[in-house]
């Protein structure tokens, strides 16, 4: 009896959580087709005109382009150096491997804002003023922990005998890595890439201190729009970003399964 009551309560909490989490996302979608500029809800009629106005938002295209560049590049670099480090940690006879593993994921524990002001002062102190490069380097610190965490976990489960098997079957060492290890670790690469891309693309608290008047990432631009003139155009833009996220998630789910990501993502 007690047990069944507890299970009922658990399901109730889960239902509440799912609904509660869905509400803001549904709101944004609904507001994006609002016929009037004041987010009239519930809807009376629908309009797609706000979508047409996204492109006319002041400074939208440069911000989108900058965010994509930074997110893609920082993710790519983090994937390479993070994976190499993970191999050294899991596999190699590396002195202090455990310390390095802890250090690599430690920026995750750190408030983004603190990293932002630390880098701001640091770049000023060493006279580094190139905004674009500063953003890229900062986002490398943001993305590297995600890659390191996922790849260390993935490699720890990887059976390195597979590489040996490939070598005895005729592969060179490099060939064995490329033909066996990389494909076998594809789920980990995908998870790591997805997490770090999203972390970079959505980052606000680090970027805010490193942008200038002309170089702004999309999240910064969006917060500015919301504070200056909130209208359903922003809801339309948010809906598009959500849609892109959904597509990414569905694709990942098809490829590797979300429950596996839930397992590896702490």
């Amino acid at each position: 009896m007690t047990a069944r009551l507890a299970i009922g309560f658990a399901w109730l909490a889960a239902l509440a959580a799912v609904l509660f989490l869905a509400v803001p996302l549904l709101t944004v979608v609904a507001a994006s087709v609002s016929p009037t500029p004041v987010f009239d809800l519930p809807l009376e009629g629908a309009s797609l005109r706000w979508y047409a106005r996204i492109g006319r938002l002041d400074g939208f295209w440069p911000a989108l382009s900058l965010s994509l560049q930074i997110a893609l590049l920082s993710t790519a670099i983090a994937l390479v150096i993070g994976t190499l480090a993970a191999i050294a940690i899991v596999r190699g006879r590396l002195p202090g491997a455990e310390t390095l593993a802890t250090a690599l994921v430690s920026p995750l524990m750190m408030p983004g804002l603190v990293l932002g002001i630390a880098l701001l002062q640091y770049f000023r102190a060493v006279g580094f003023t190139a905004t674009w490069s500063a953003l890229l380097l900062a986002h490398l610190v943001v993305t590297l922990p995600y890659v390191a965490r996922t790849m260390i976990a993935g490699l720890a489960l990887f059976d390195f005998t597979l590489v040996e098997a490939a070598r005895t079957l005729g592969c060179t060492y490099a060939g064995a890595i490329l033909r066996v290890m990389v494909p076998a670790l594809a789920p980990s690469f995908l998870t790591a890439g997805l997490f770090s891309f999203l972390a970079s693309f959505d980052n606000y608290p680090v970027s805010i201190f490193l942008t200038d008047v002309r170089t702004k990432t999309l999240p910064i631009k969006m917060l500015q729009y919301i504070e200056e003139a909130p209208d359903p155009t922003l809801a339309a833009l948010s809906t598009l970003i959500l849609a892109a996220t959904v597509i990414l998630l569905v694709a990942s789910d098809r490829l590797i399964g979300l429950h596996r990501m839930a397992g590896t993502s702490e």
Binding site: L21, A22, L25, V28, M222, S238, L249
Partner: peptide, 26 residues
């Protein structure tokens, strides 16, 4: 389970700014 995991992951992946903006509307 798929639906519930999706309901967890989508908000996790969705931009903080988008969600905060939604609450200002709500």
């Amino acid at each position: 389970r798929s639906v519930m995991l999706a309901a967890l992951f989508l908000p996790l992946a969705a931009s903080v700014i988008v969600k905060a903006f939604a609450w200002t509307i709500l």
